[in-house]
Design a protein around this nucleic acid. Structure first.
Lengths: 145, 145
DNA sequence: CCATAATTGAACTTGATTTTCAATATCATA
DNA sequence: TATGATATTGAAAATCAAGTTCAATTATGG
């Protein structure tokens, strides 16, 4: 958490950008959230702290967080970007419950390796990937039966 | 091809929907295209056949094609839906070149199995998934070096 | 404290997709 | 094959996420 803040300060400094209250509040809100959330959800949290802060500033700051390596954007299957923590949070894939929307993070070295092999077989240099598995989670399965 | 048309007719009939020239033209255009294309690309092809047909009808018909199991929508990493053939075209994953935008389809039973296993380990009932591997294709690698 | 330049919020723009609505076309039935 | 109920269409407007403009404000080095 504190590290992420230091990273962001260093990033701003290195780029000749400024440290502002708004950026602080947005970073805090972001770091305090768990999971995968849209810009709008971040905006709502930020608004509670300081209702003056506008959407534009939230979008602008999220972009900075991505550039700084603190946030990462992903698309699931609506056309809306979600953000998750990146700093101190390695690559992983996602299980998405189509009932309740819950997202579980998974990682399996075997799958990762197989993907790289497959890409290389086709002459591709793999850079990044996203694997989203949509299904029904344990709780929703119980609930609906 | 012809089968897909029959499927669509049956779908329309079953839903009490009507058979129209526009829907015919859009389905033809869709079936005649290879790969993964946006609504706008479909619209352009359709326009050549019949410039009267509007965007709204293209979007509406694509939605029907998806409902009928003839088309499938996927998001890569811009916020724009792409469509691919689904009828007679089994599940597969995608290699996406970040330079030229080319998309290659891949399928690997081992990866599929590993994904199912992983989902089940977490109590998920997997329904579908999408794996997009972003990288640089063979041609682009040669070109840029 | 000042000057410069980055930042902000509000409103506006963009791009993709969806909806509205009046006019038109389809299709089962008479 | 004419009719009428209703699905469909195109054009324009609406929506939704995201990005941009601009005048006013603020951070920061000197």
């Amino acid at each position: 958490m504190e590290n992420a803040k230091r990273i962001f300060d260093a990033f701003l400094c290195a780029k000749g950008l400024r440290h502002t209250d708004q950026r602080d509040i947005i970073l805090d809100a972001f770091l305090g959230m768990e999971g995968h959330f849209s810009a709008e959800e971040i905006y709502r949290i930020v608004s509670e702290k300081n209702p003056e802060i506008g959407y534009a500033t939230v979008y602008r700051t999220i972009k900075l967080l991505c550039d700084a390596g603190i946030a990462r954007g992903i698309y699931f299957d609506d056309g809306r970007m979600r953000y998750e923590h990146k700093y101190g949070h390695g690559h992983h894939d996602h299980l998405v419950c189509i009932r309740c929307g819950k997202v579980i993070e998974i990682f399996d070295p075997q799958i990762e390796k197989a993907q790289d092999r497959l890409a290389k077989e086709k002459g591709f240099v793999p850079i990044r990937h996203q694997l989203n598995i949509f299904g029904v989670c344990k709780e929703c399965r119980k609930r609906n039966k």
